[in-house]
Design a protein around this nucleic acid. Sequence first.
DNA 1: ACAAATTTTTAGATTTGTCTAAAAATAATA
DNA 2: TATTATTTTTAGACAAATCTAAAAATTTGT
Lengths: 227, 227
Amino acid sequence: MCIIKIEMTLSEENYLKSIFHLEKKYARGVSTNALAEEMETKASSVTDMIKKLSEKNLVNYKKYQGVKLSEKGNSIAVQIIRKHRLWEYFLVEKLDFNWDEVHDIAEQLEHIKSDELIAKLDKFLDYPKRDPHGDPIPDAEGNFANLEKKILAEFNEGDQGICVGVKDSSAAFLQYLDRNKIKLGKSITILEKEQFDGSMILKMNNKELTISKVAANNIYLKPISLE
Amino acid sequence: MCIIKIEMTLSEENYLKSIFHLEKKYARGVSTNALAEEMETKASSVTDMIKKLSEKNLVNYKKYQGVKLSEKGNSIAVQIIRKHRLWEYFLVEKLDFNWDEVHDIAEQLEHIKSDELIAKLDKFLDYPKRDPHGDPIPDAEGNFANLEKKILAEFNEGDQGICVGVKDSSAAFLQYLDRNKIKLGKSITILEKEQFDGSMILKMNNKELTISKVAANNIYLKPISLE
DNA sequence: ACAAATTTTTAGATTTGTCTAAAAATAATA
DNA sequence: TATTATTTTTAGACAAATCTAAAAATTTGT
Ligand SMILES: [Mn+2]
Ligand SMILES: [Mn+2]
Ligand SMILES: [Mn+2]
Ligand SMILES: [Mn+2]
C-alpha cells in the first residue's frame, strides 16, 4: 500500500537484492561480512550503505547485529527480482539467448525505472511464472508462486522427478548441464546412488548419465509419486 | 575498425549524444552554453566533462572554441542513438506503448551495455529502418538510411506528400498529432497556405484540417510528384 | 578601438559511493 | 576468565559529477 515512490540508486537496489537473497541463509540477520562478500566490496562500504538504507527505513539495523529488510525494503527487493527474472525470460524466449548468457544483462535491465514498462513486458510475455533457471517470477503484487521442489542429491534410488530448476546459475554450471542435455522439464530417474562419494547414475532421455554430488546438489527436481 | 571497447559512463554517453545532435545545428563547433542548455546543467560542468572527453580523444576541443566529435566519439554517439531508436521501436511495436510515451524509457535503455543484446534485439524486430517518430535507425555499422523528407511548412498549395516524421518529438506535440489523427504514413495534400500567419489547410483522411505554422514546422513529408 | 556584455573557464565546495588503516566491539579459545 | 582472533565500525581519503562564485577570454556595440 505504498504509493510514494522512493528514489533508489542502482547501488541501493543491489544491496537490497543481496540482503533479500542472504536472508534465506541467515534468517537472524545478514552480517556485514556476508554482505561484503556477496557485493564484492569491503565491509566498511557495507556499513556505510547499511546506515543509509537504515536512515531510509528500508532495513532494520543495530550496530554489530547485522541487517534485515524492513517491509518496505523487502517489497522493493522483490520488485527488482521480478524485473530481473522477467527480463531473463524475455532474453531467452524472445531474443533467443541461451540460459547461461542472460544474467549479466538482466543485472543491468533490472534497474530500468518504469512501472508501465514492466507491466507491459509482463503482459507481452504472457505472465510467465518462472525464469529460465526455474526461479519463480513474483507477480505485480510481489507474490511468489512456489513450486514443490527438492535438491536432486536428496533423492534416493528408484525415485523419479522432473527437473524444475537450478540452485547454481553460473554460466559454468549451466554449460555443464547443456553438455549433458539436462534441461528444465526433463524427467529423471535415479538408478543408483554411490554411498562413497554421493555421485548418482540417472536415467534421462532413455540414456544413463553419471553426475557428481556437487552437480546433484545444484539441481532441483519436482518429485513424481510412483504409486 | 575499433575493437577496443572504451569504458563509458552514463554521463559521458549522454554528452556525446547531445554533441552529436547539436552538431547538426552548429556545424563549426558546439558551444559550451548550447551544450549546457541541452544537458540541463551548468556551463562549468560542461567544461569539466569536455576536458574529460577530450582527454579520451572522443572530442576535439580547444579552449573557447567549442567541441566537435572525433571519429571515435561520433561512432559511439551513433551506436547510442541506434540503441535508443531500436528500443523505442520495440516499446511501440511489441509492448504497445504510444509514441509519446517511449522517449524517457529509451533514455534509460540506451545505456545497457551488451553488443549481443542489441544485435539480437535488431534481429527480433526484423531490422527496422525508422523509429516510431520517423527517425532513421543506424545499422550495426553506423550507416543511416536517409529518406527524402521536407518540412511541411515549406510545401506549397497543391503539393502532396506522405507524413514520414516529426521534428519535435515532445509528448505534447505527439499528443496534438494524435488528437488530429496525423500519423506516419498518412497522405497529405496542401489545399491552402495562409500568407498572413503561415497556417495551412490540409486534406487528410478525406477531411480538411487546419494547422498552425508552428505545427507545420515540425512535421516532415516525403513529397509525391504529381506528374 | 574601447568599453560593455556575454561566454567560457577556473577555483573551490558538495554529494555519492568507494577505499585503506586503525579503533572498537564481539566471539572464540585456552 | 583472560587472551587471542575475528568481525564490525570509525576516521580520513579519493574519484566522479555536479554546483556557485569569481576570473579570464571573447564578442558586441558605439
Ligand atoms: Mn539472474
Ligand atoms: Mn534467473
Ligand atoms: Mn527519443
Ligand atoms: Mn525517436
